[in-house]
Design a protein around this nucleic acid. Structure first.
Length: 511
RNA sequence: UCCUCAGUAGCUCAGUUGGUUAGAGCAUCUGACUGUUAAUCAGAGGGUCGUAGGUUCGAGUCCUACCUGAGGAGCCA
């Protein structure tokens, strides 16, 4: 058996269809190559594409005796005298379909061409399985081989791979149990996010990826330029003349869509952003990426108390949806990755979140009979160890901490009447610590102007942000959720690089 | 960016106070087995010990630099 290499898309498709292994008549040399003129591209496409009802997850729902075709990638194949077993998976669910092929209807020689990683279609009858391990299995009558996978060089083995190794084969890792489950959960969580907001009348706003305002001060930004770095235009002072650049000024990849989100909240009332975000920090930890996805709702006519309630409802909704739709994957994580995943998620869904102020939190921490690596003192930001103590040991459930000292929070957070604290909130959950950060925004023009000045930020850069406070200003609030941190929470995965398809970190942008 | 640890077969690892021909399991290949479930059993092949220097009669092992990865810190989502 050979694989035809071709470069034209239509030829590739035809060669995919040409390796039909006809098992029913025991003549394994029958590999017909259909005349290219026999079929149009569209007809070929409709023949190979999976439709609802065709996925392996759907096949499990069909009655015993049904004639079905299963398509997917071989996870393992086992040969015995007279019979072979294939575990087939198309990514639609965690459970593999077991395909059974009798050597009286198919030659062992031909079956041994098929190995882990090969892509095949199998047609046959769905039957009750006589053995332990699965309720039903597919009794294969004919197998179509789309693409073989050389067993001697295929890198994704059946066992023994570390997360670090799988990261190096990111083009193959979605086919593994763990990563198939991770990305199904990621998809389900993403859908739940949209569903939650859409059901509540929030509009999804596509805030820009490229921005010219570097004034937020939320960390280092990636520059975007079309200038020739070897020979950039210079100003008279000798610096780079950004006026000559593509956008006529220095521009960057966004670090947050919040400020633009506020514009739309003050026009469409309730909105959310959901998209990629970039930080050029040289931070190399299991919790940081240079490119990650963030969800940022922004609500008009909303104070911090409402903000807090939305955040609680939001987290519970995502978890509930994933538990309802991807319990097969969650059970795998609970069994193989972290045996506290399910109990933690159930705790979050079934508890009313606690609520304390920063001042109360500091009081609790000072009175705690613990030796902190970082001493606690009013005015100093809470460390991870403090956050986890409060949520895991004091409350034993999620806690929202509000009203932080103004010095340790961003300029746009609304000043409290005490003049010392701002209407900020952090949602802390067991095992992770902070998962959501948010605030009520400063809607009073004069107060915001003073705040920007006090923090030494340039007023001009915020001209439009300040105008929102001059024309039809209203109390409003919002928060941010890092999608990957949520996926880590849902799956128990320990490294953020393993919950995003293609991680970007300092020194690494492969694939 | 700083601190710590690691890098030996395709993968996961062992390798003693420096010692002559570097091992295992899995994977691969060959064979056996009529229902397997990380199949099992028998046999075979497979290594520039991260890279470059250095110390030594002799380096996988000791030293230096660099590269890559992981954990911790800072920053945060």
């Amino acid at each position: 058996m050979l694989i035809v290499q071709s470069s034209q898309p239509t030829e590739i498709l035809i060669s995919i269809l040409s390796y039909t292994l006809t098992l029913a008549n025991s003549d394994f040399s029958l590999f017909s190559r259909p005349d290219k003129n026999d079929s149009t591209f569209n007809e070929l496409l409709s023949n190979v594409m999976l439709h609802p009802g065709d996925y392996i997850k759907d096949i499990f729902q069909k009655p015993v005796g049904a004639e079905v075709t299963a398509r997917g990638w071989v996870k393992t194949i086992r040969h015995s005298k007279g019979i072979s077993f294939i575990q087939l998976n198309d990514g639609s669910g965690f459970t593999d379909l077991q395909v059974v092929v009798d050597h009286q209807t198919a030659s062992e020689e031909a079956l041994k061409e098929i190995s882990t990683g090969a892509c095949i279609s199998v047609t046959g009858e769905l039957v009750e399985s006589p053995a332990q391990g699965q309720a039903v299995e597919l009794k294969g009558n004919s197998i179509e081989v789309h693409g073989l996978a050389d067993a001697a060089t295929y890198k994704l083995q059946k066992k023994g791979a570390t997360m670090e190794f799988l990261r190096e084969i990111a083009h193959l890792r979605p086919r593994s149990n763990t990563f198939g489950a991770v990305f199904r959960v990621r998809n389900a969580a993403s859908y739940a996010i949209h569903k939650f907001f859409q059901e509540r009348g929030f509009a999804w706003v596509h805030t820009p990826i490229i921005t010219a305002s570097d004034a937020e001060g939320a960390g280092a930004m990636f520059g975007v330029t079309t200038l020739d770095l070897m020979n950039p235009p210079k100003t008279q002072e000798g610096g780079i003349d950004w006026a000559e650049d593509f956008f006529g000024k220095r521009s960057f990849l966004t670090v947050s869509g919040q400020l633009e989100g506020e514009i739309f909240a003050e026009a469409m009332s309730n909105i959310y952003t959901f998209g990629p975000t970039f930080r050029a920090e040289n931070s190399n930890t299991p919790r940081h990426l240079a490119e990650f996805w963030m969800v940022e709702p922004e609500m008009a006519f909303c104070d911090l108390d409402d903000d807090r309630r939305v955040a609680e409802e939001f987290l519970k909704y995502i978890i509930t949806h994933v538990m309802d739709t991807r319990m097969d994957d969650l059970e795998f994580f609970n069994k193989r990755i972290d045996d506290t995943v399910l109990s933690t998620l159930e705790t979050v869904v079934n508890s009313d979140f606690g609520h304390i102020t920063y001042t109360e939190a500091v009081d609790i921490l000072e009175k705690a009979n613990k030796s902190w690596e970082f001493p606690v003192k009013w005015g100093v930001d809470l460390q991870s160890e403090h956050e986890r103590y409060i949520t895991e040991e004091v409350f034993k459930k999620p806690v929202v901490v509000t009203d932080y000292p103004k010095e340790i929070k961003a300029f746009y957070m609304r000043m409290n009447d005490d003049g010392k604290t701002v209407r900020a909130m952090d949602v802390l959950v067991p095992r992770i610590g902070e998962i959501i950060g948010g605030s009520q925004r400063e809607e009073r023009h004069a107060v915001l102007v003073e705040k920007i000045k006090a923090m030494g930020l340039p007023l001009e850069a915020y001209w439009w942000y300040l105008e929102l406070r001059k024309y039809g200003s209203v109390p409003h609030a919002g928060f941010g959720l890092g999608l990957e941190r949520m996926i880590m929470y849902l799956t128990g995965m320990k490294n953020i690089r393993d919950v995003i398809p293609f991680p970007r970190t300092p020194g690494s942008a492969e694939f």
